[in-house]
C-alpha cells in the first residue's frame, strides 16, 4: 500500500513523457540547491567508487552541452559486465543525457556537443573511426515510451537482425525472433499472432516487444531510459523481473525515477544532480547509508 502511494507520488514528478527531457533542463523545486554553482561547490567530486570490476563501459571527464546549457559536467563512471546500474536523480539532472551518450543517440540532436573520454571495451566511442551502426548494435537501447514500429510483431523483432544481416536464411531469422521473444517473456502471449501489428499490444507487452527487438541484435550493453514510466504497476513488475533475468547475460544501465525500482533491480546506483554525478555505490548503501547530503535528501524524499 505504502509502495503504491510512493509510486503515485513519484509519477506526479516524472519528466514529461515526450522523450525530449534531455533538451531542456528543468529546474528542480526551490527547496533544493537549484543553483549550478552551489552544486559545483558541494558536489564537485563524486563520492564513492566510480570504477567497476571488469568494466565494459568506461567514462572519464564526460561533458555534454546543449547549445548554451551545460547538461553534464565531468562525469566519471564505469559500467561493469553483468551488472545492473541504476541512474537516479531529479528531473533534468542529466541521467538520460548520460546514457544517450553511451550509444551516441545524442548525435541525432543538432545542438548537442559531447566531450570527454567514453569507451566501450577500451575503444573510444566518439573516435572518428568508430562506426555508429556497429556501436548501436553493441549497445542497445530501450526508450521511455514503448515505441514499436507500425509493423507486425514478427517484423518488429526481425528488424534489427534484418538490417544488420545477422541471419543468413529465414530459419535463422525465425530462430532469432522466437529466441528474443522468449527471453523477453513475450513468446507465450504473442506466438499465435506474430502477424498482427505490434502497436495493437498493451503498453507492457509493447515495452517487452521493444526489449525483444533490442536483444534480437544480441547487444553487449542494454541502456534503458525509464522503461517503466508509462506502464502500470503490474506491467512494471514484469519488466523488472525481465531485467533481472537479462542481467545474467547483458550489462544494463537503467535510468529510473522510482527509487523502489532502483533498489529492486540494480547492483549499483549512481545519483545525479544538476549535471553532476554526486555519488556512486552499491545500491543498498546508497539507499540505507548515503554519504552525501544531496543523496540523502533525495532518497529520503526531501525533494525529487
Amino acid at each position: 500500500m505504502l509502495l503504491m502511494d510512493r509510486e503515485k507520488g513519484f509519477a506526479a514528478m516524472r519528466e514529461p513523457a515526450d522523450g525530449r527531457e534531455p533538451v531542456a533542463a528543468t529546474p528542480v523545486s526551490p527547496m533544493v540547491i537549484a543553483d549550478a554553482a552551489e552544486t559545483d561547490r558541494i558536489a564537485a567530486d563524486t563520492v564513492g567508487d566510480v570504477t567497476a570490476k571488469d568494466a565494459v563501459i568506461c567514462v572519464r571527464g564526460g561533458n555534454v552541452h546543449y547549445g548554451e546549457t551545460h547538461a553534464l559536467r565531468d562525469i566519471n563512471l564505469d559500467v561493469g559486465r553483468n551488472e545492473v546500474i541504476a541512474l537516479i536523480g531529479p528531473s533534468g539532472c542529466g541521467k538520460s543525457t548520460f546514457i544517450r551518450c553511451l550509444n551516441r543517440m545524442n548525435d541525432t540532436i543538432e545542438s548537442a556537443k559531447v566531450t570527454g573520454d567514453f569507451r566501450l571495451d577500451g575503444q573510444d566511442i566518439y573516435a572518428r573511426d568508430t562506426d555508429v551502426v556497429m556501436l548501436r548494435a553493441r549497445v542497445g537501447m530501450v526508450f521511455q515510451k514503448p515505441n514499436p514500429f507500425p509493423k507486425s510483431i514478427y517484423e518488429n523483432v526481425a528488424y534489427g537482425p534484418r538490417i544488420h544481416g545477422l541471419a543468413s536464411n529465414r530459419a535463422e531469422l525465425d530462430d532469432i525472433v522466437y529466441g528474443s521473444l522468449e527471453r523477453a517473456g513475450l513468446v507465450d502471449e504473442v506466438k499465435d499472432r506474430l502477424d498482427e501489428p505490434g502497436t495493437g499490444l498493451s503498453g507492457g507487452q509493447q515495452q517487452r516487444l521493444c526489449i525483444a527487438r533490442t536483444i534480437a541484435v544480441n547487444p553487449e550493453v542494454i541502456l534503458m531510459d525509464e522503461p517503466c514510466s508509462a506502464l502500470d504497476p503490474i506491467a512494471t513488475a514484469r519488466i523488472e523481473d525481465l531485467i533481472d533475468e537479462l542481467s545474467q547475460k547483458y550489462a544494463i544501465a537503467i535510468v529510473t525515477h522510482s527509487m523502489q525500482q532502483a533498489a529492486r533491480v540494480s547492483n549499483r546506483t549512481a545519483y545525479f544532480h544538476l549535471g553532476r554525478l554526486v555519488e556512486v555505490g552499491p545500491t543498498d548503501k546508497i539507499f540505507t547509508n548515503p554519504s552525501h547530503k544531496l543523496t540523502e535528501d533525495y532518497v529520503t524524499g526531501r525533494f525529487g
Binding site: 553493441r138 538490417i163 532469432i176 529466441g179 544480441n218
Partner: peptide, 22 residues
C-alpha cells in the same frame, strides 16, 4: 533452437554488412 550468436560472431556479421549499407 540454435544457440544465440556470440558477441564476436554478431560483430563479425554486422561488420560484413557495413560496406553495402553505407
Amino acid at each position: 533452437m540454435a544457440a544465440p550468436l556470440t558477441p564476436a560472431e554478431t560483430r563479425r556479421r554486422v561488420d560484413a554488412s557495413l560496406r553495402r549499407r553505407y
